[in-house]
């Protein structure tokens, strides 16, 4: 589904990614771990198409197509989703309005008929169950005045509505208390299936107790320094990142 080859990227002239190679197949869950500044979030943003990040070398193939040539919104309509570490507040635009527009954009892209507000309301109600979200959140402005946990749940709600093929969750566990973490992780588990793939970008092992990855990749200094199964995350929890970063330096 996703093939990253020798990916180099800069932001504000700083080289952050220095040759990432990663292959993700459908049905898989990958965890990207690493200390602060190792490039985890940069990788997520480059894949989503953030305009501040410049790819200086390498390529990314998504379902055989050149992902880097697609605009941000095109990537999304093709099924790439990124849950933000810090979801953005959009005052004056209701959650339901926004979700319906985004959903219909995708339907149009796939040549399917758009849903009218009533039809969409039913769908939204159904999908909101995935993250146990109350209907009152639908009429509120996107993320405005939401608590940290509510924002993260709202990200997973968007994922539930848009049904991406490739979901990249950037530090989705940060700032969540244990109950919220359980809800969010439960949502992701419900949405994951044999046809899609999930990439968890996380600093801590904690999230991986709830969403169990098939593979763990550890980033250090812009490269993948170590790879393994879920037991690698446990090892990191125990030993910290130092032994990997010093080896990578």
């Amino acid at each position: 589904m996703l093939e990253i080859r020798n990916l180099h990227a800069t932001v504000d002239g700083n080289q952050i990614l220095k040759g990432i190679n990663l292959t993700i197949k459908k049905g898989e869950i990958h965890a990207i771990m690493g200390p602060n500044g190792s490039g985890k979030s940069t990788l997520a943003k480059v894949l989503a198409g953030h305009p501040a990040y410049e790819v200086t070398a390498g390529e990314v193939l998504y379902e055989g197509k050149n992902l880097l040539e697609m605009s941000t919104d095109e990537r999304a309509r093709e099924g790439v989703f990124m849950a933000f570490q810090y979801p953005i507040e959009v005052p004056g635009v209701s959650n339901a309005q926004f979700l319906r527009l985004a959903y219909n954009e995708k339907r149009k892209h796939l040549g399917e008929e758009e849903l009218d507000p009533l039809e969409f309301k039913d769908l939204l109600k159904e999908r909101a169950k995935v993250v146990e979200m109350d209907a009152s959140f639908m009429t509120r402005s996107v993320n405005e005045g939401f608590s940290g946990g509510e924002k993260k749940r709202n990200e997973i709600l968007q994922m539930a509505v848009l049904e991406p093929k490739l979901a990249i969750l950037d530090e989705t566990d940060s700032g969540l208390d244990i109950d919220a973490l359980r809800v969010v992780a439960g949502g992701v588990n419900q949405l994951h299936n044999s046809e899609n793939a999930v990439v968890l970008v996380t600093h801590y092992q904690r999230l991986l107790n709830y969403i169990v990855p098939h593979y763990v990749h550890v980033l250090a200094n812009g490269r993948i320094a170590r790879e393994g199964g879920k037991e690698l995350a446990l090892e990191l929890e125990e030993k910290g990142y130092d032994w990997i970063t010093s080896a990578a330096a």
Partner: peptide
């Protein structure tokens, strides 16, 4: 905000 909306598939 613009980037956020675009990552959900809404064109520019």
């Amino acid at each position: 905000q613009l980037f956020y909306l675009q990552t959900r598939g809404t064109h520019g």
